[in-house]
Amino acid sequence: MNHYMVLKKKDFNAFIEKLSKKMKVAAPVRKGVKNFAFEEVTRGDAISRVSLPTILPPKKYFMPQRETIQTFDRAVPRWNSVVSENDAIVIFGVHTCDLSGIQFLNAVMGTPPKDANYLARKANITVIGLECNDYCDAYASCKAMKTHLPSGGYDLFFTDIGDAFMVQTGSAAGETLAQETGFFTTADTGEQKKLGNIRKKKEKIFKDEISVKYANLRTVFEKTVQSEVWEDIGSRCVACGNCTNVCPTCYCFDIQDEIDLNLRTGRRVRVWDGCQNEEFAKVAGGENFRRKRGQRQRHRYMRKFAYPMEKYGTYACTGCGRCTRTCMAKISLKETIHALGEEAKS
């Protein structure tokens, strides 16, 4: 059942400390002026609660950059599957954009044949969301992607209401975790009202950031497959793959074998990979089905705005703005959508 509790800000430090004695706690930590990263913390005051997204989304806890999926010994004709289970971990400070990213990954990895490695990690992760009361920066498009408000995907969800956090429970696991720490009280009507006011204020602050309506996005992308916009983006893209690495819904990977120095034992690992890398769609005969950078960028966008609608019934863009923020070539998601939208009109 969804219900509201309150955690006083003065108890926040103690709450995180107590939690970190029981299990790992990861949260955004400041890394320089505008950069933040999810890291293990043991103290509440180490946590940054600004709304700007972390460099990498929390997907790294569900699907690490590098993960052993098998071990082998060349002397024995046997491969041993490894489904490694992480220690129990709480991820605190997951913004609503990233919650929707996790929900998307859950849908993909939970579609049969299910990804046992992902699901084993997920089973040990508790997610605590944190509301953005205001925009992080001008790159976000969370209102347009309908991810600026909490909509599931969390065990607990925090909203800063001044001297306290309003805490919404999303799962029995979240409820138990909160109860066990002993810091949470039931919300009174005054606190409920404060939350209501914040949400009302958000309605005024958050406006559609892109010029194409949510319902029309898929059609716009499908109509503009042959657009010159892709040529333009392709001419600027340096194929670094940053956009896919930082994307909360990019999950493509490569599978590689590593052999130990004894040349006998080794392991098979899966590592993050991305469609922007030149080799990604190349086959053994040398044919590359997305040889040009423009084609690869189009593929990335289609995988956010067209294909997943068909397959999973949702867009795969969370509006977090990371791809634009990280792009060295200043390829902007909002500008791209705007240009395609204008073209689709004509």
């Binding site: 044949p113 493509c252 769609a281 053994a284 995988r303 294909y307 068909e310």
Partner: peptide, 19 residues
């Protein structure tokens, strides 16, 4: 169709042709 499948189970993305 020839593609370079890496996982074989519809996850890794390498063999994708449109959706």
């Amino acid at each position: 169709m020839e593609r370079h499948m890496k996982c074989g189970v519809g996850k890794c993305g390498h063999c994708q042709i449109a959706q």
